[in-house]
Design a protein around this nucleic acid. Structure first.
Lengths: 240, 240
DNA sequence: CGTCTTATTGATATCCCTCAAGCTGTGTGG
DNA sequence: CCACACAGCTTGAGGGATATCAATAAGACG
């Protein structure tokens, strides 16, 4: 039995997590004085919301792991991102009457529901909140654009490398090992996100394993040569 | 000489444009009471800003046509969008010290510079502005995600069809013909935006022409069968 | 232990890219 | 006004990366 297997929920709460005042970009303690925050737990496969449901709240991921899926009229579907602790979810639907995409838990998760008109109203009393929210939206755009660049200019293998590095960085930001982690999603979800087919993702992972860049065993990933991966993905910086 | 050739600048000002109170998502008349709005003219090829320049303003496109380009450390580059009258530009860099991408005019253009800290400050006096700005950011995210879905699930030909429909819709929204318009960008820019090569874009256009869906002559486009294009691009609705 | 889902691997097909050449329109200078 | 050069577009031939189809293997779960 390895260490990762004991992480029943991902990411596990840090010791002070219940008391943490700032989760992600939002000052929750202060916000909770103005709006009623509901905590929702989701089992793997459950939806936080679906496209078409009436928009009433944005969510802060407190624990777990989720994916956002874009859907088209004719049934095409694509994973547009993965969300973990500290990420805001639902902001893409601000200004609409109905949510525009699906959000599905990939693991046991807890999300904090921030009812939207109240949050907007609270911005009048918390100027800080307003700029945080706007900055979070802008960062979302930059993040999407960075992936657009990657998907349009990198080969399958490079995309997978970039994906692993992104996961590693986000794990690190939450205080987990960037060198050794468990993917919370299946090959098909990775493939959808990267604009590939699941067999291609598998082959890329196998190849990176053979190149001694990583060690893969199903969903368990070990980064052996992060610098090599970064060169491959066209990124200069190192994971600290 | 055809009608399009007489449109020296695109889109031309509408008769009341100088007096128009609401351009795009922002109430400019009211905003101009709070912040100093500078009008900048750009010739084709000129940059509104470049990645790395210090962030000090967002822009409202008043006339003309521009592209936004994402750049990577190792020299990869990709067009992430095209902007026309009413579009906001620069919002992706909110929260940063420096702009994160390039914005280049493709045609004679005029952009209105909205200095950013002042705009943020003005939000305190104009609650409407705040929600408009947030909604504009959210729409940007949805727009990017819709293209992510398209680029990940459509063939080259379908992408080109979707691109033409998008252009047609946006022309229509500005009061121009959706059936007959001039592309402001070259094949290479379209290709970059769609994650293709310029030869592939050319071939797709030629093919759509042969299929009698459109008529192409260099940059002049005529939509002969918008419904056919829409079916092709997996979109149900019609251009009204 | 059997079933089901997920992942891996292989063989082949296809779409798009690459490279190369020719074409078209535009601008420039004689 | 014409000759020329140049940039952008088009077209063709061929190759390569990824998709597709199919079979097997490995876990997960009851």
């Amino acid at each position: 039995m390895n260490a990762l297997a004991t992480q029943t929920s991902f990411p596990p709460y840090s010791p002070q997590s219940q008391a943490m005042a700032v989760a992600g970009p939002i000052d929750i303690d202060q916000l909770s004085r103005h709006v009623q925050i509901l905590r929702r737990k989701l089992a793997p496969g459950q939806h936080a919301y679906r496209a078409g449901q009436s928009f009433h709240a944005i969510y802060l991921v407190h624990a777990g792991f989720l994916k956002t899926c874009e859907l088209s009229e004719d049934g095409r579907e694509r994973v547009t991102g993965f969300r973990m602790r500290g990420d805001l979810v639902g902001v893409e639907s601000i200004g609409l009457a109905h949510y525009s995409c699906d959000v599905v838990a990939l693991d046991d998760s807890e999300i904090w529901e921030l009812p939207y008109p109240p949050v907007m109203h609270a911005c009048l009393y918390m100027p800080e909140l307003q700029s945080r929210l706007t900055a979070a939206l802008a960062e979302e755009i930059r993040n999407d654009r960075a992936w657009m660049l990657a998907l349009g200019t990198l080969s399958a293998e490079q995309r997978v490398a970039a994906f692993l590095l992104d996961m590693a960085r986000r794990h690190l930001r939450l205080g987990f090992s960037a060198r050794h982690f468990l993917l919370r999603m299946g090959r098909a979800d990775i493939a959808s996100f990267l604009g590939l087919k699941h067999e291609t993702v598998t082959r890329a992972l196998t190849r990176l394993d053979r190149l001694q860049c990583i060690e893969v065993q199903r969903r368990e990933i070990r980064l052996l040569d992060a610098d090599g991966l970064q060169r491959m993905a066209g990124q200069g910086e190192t994971i600290h």
